[in-house]
Design a binder for these strands. Structure first.
Lengths: 203, 203
DNA sequence: ATTTAACAATACTGGTCGGTATAGTCAACC
DNA sequence: GGTTGACTATACCGACCAGTATTGTTAAAT
């Protein structure tokens, strides 16, 4: 019946984690601009003052939210990739990961595309996170395409990237992740062509 | 030196047009939520009261803005299509139209995707316009694919749709429309394959 | 020439926003 | 066991928001 001793830093980290959890839920589902700091704090079970003792401003929290979401997405993707041996399957399983990521959430689409829609200013700190996220995905696709022995891996990676973006956005708009399967099928054709004919396909 | 006589209905239509012009500029460039009705009215050179005599609410204006933008996009697209005879070129020129539409504006991306990002509620009246817009593009692609004699025109149209969405979003994020050319190149491969092998490509 | 209606000008409502100030509570820490 | 600091509670700030009410003014319509 004795409550476990909790250190101060543990408490701080726990509070910060809850705040970021709330940000992830409310910012993603309801939009960033539409979500007030008051609602954020309440969802996290803390007061606004506590929020501002962890983050210097709402923008600061927005950046932290996007960065953590990016980190979690990468981890989720890598776990998925680890489940495959064939490099071509790995490459295509990115589509499966995206579909599951979309369907398992509230189907609000790409947090980074949404963020760009809400913050037109390209110099906004959040937009830098958006660029990093997209660059990260592109790089990973390029690595996977290279490992799969695809000819013209940059071009192929770029084409797969476009299919991912298009199907993710569309899936979100319609509330149906099935369209990502279609994109995957097209991607499979592109990958096959890239292996077969020396990368003539759009490279 | 005699000012031209202007009828009352002409004046009303002119005012409404200016309001919609302002909405098109400010909503698109700065985002809908971030743009206040006061700023809208000022940009149009009228007062807020006048705005509310033309539109019953901001949402009402948002819907009108999206609908007019959709109408104009369709007209612009059809003009582009009329410049081509070969049905396969017509199909691919949709990509050119999209690229020019993106580059000629303020590179803020798809107004409908942005709208969906700003209004999470799928029942919001603006979201209905978004659905109509996307459905319209899909239908047109299907018609063009059919006219081009592509096998499996529904599947091909869907694939081209995904490439358009992906490249348009990406072009907007990066502020560079060139990526749409890449999507066009992939689309050309898909179209060629669809004509050649009876629609095996992702259909 | 009178009526009518689209407009300007302005002030206002009630609400929400991001962010701050102040005072007090409680448990980990040394 | 006293000190520290993470936290609560609450009130507040100025700014902005969507939308309304009121009172002109002007020019087309009749």
């Amino acid at each position: 019946m004795v409550g476990k001793q909790v250190s101060r830093t543990e408490r701080v980290e726990e509070t910060r984690r809850r705040l970021l959890d709330s940000a992830n839920a409310l910012f993603y589902e309801g939009g960033i601009r539409a979500t007030g700091v008051e609602a954020l704090a309440e969802e996290a079970g803390v007061t606004k003052m506590t929020l501002y003792s962890h983050f210097s401003s709402k923008d600061d929290l927005v950046v932290a939210y996007l960065e953590r979401r990016d980190r979690r997405w990468r981890e989720s993707l890598e776990r998925r990739l680890d489940g495959h041996d064939d490099p071509k399957e790995k490459l295509l399983s990115v589509f499966d990961a995206y579909r599951e990521w979309l369907v398992s959430g509230s189907m609000r689409g790409c947090a980074y595309v949404n963020c760009a829609a809400e913050f037109p200013d390209r110099e906004h700190p959040a937009r830098e996170v958006v660029r990093r996220h997209k660059a990260g995905l592109r790089r990973r696709l390029f690595e996977l395409a290279t490992e799969a022995g695809c000819a013209g891996p940059e071009g192929l990676a770029e084409n797969l990237f476009l299919l991912l973006e298009g199907s993710y956005v569309t899936g979100a708009l319609e509330g149906d992740g099935a369209v990502i399967w279609r994109a995957r099928a097209v991607a499979a054709e592109l990958v096959a062509a890239s292996v077969a004919d020396g990368g003539r396909c759009g490279a």
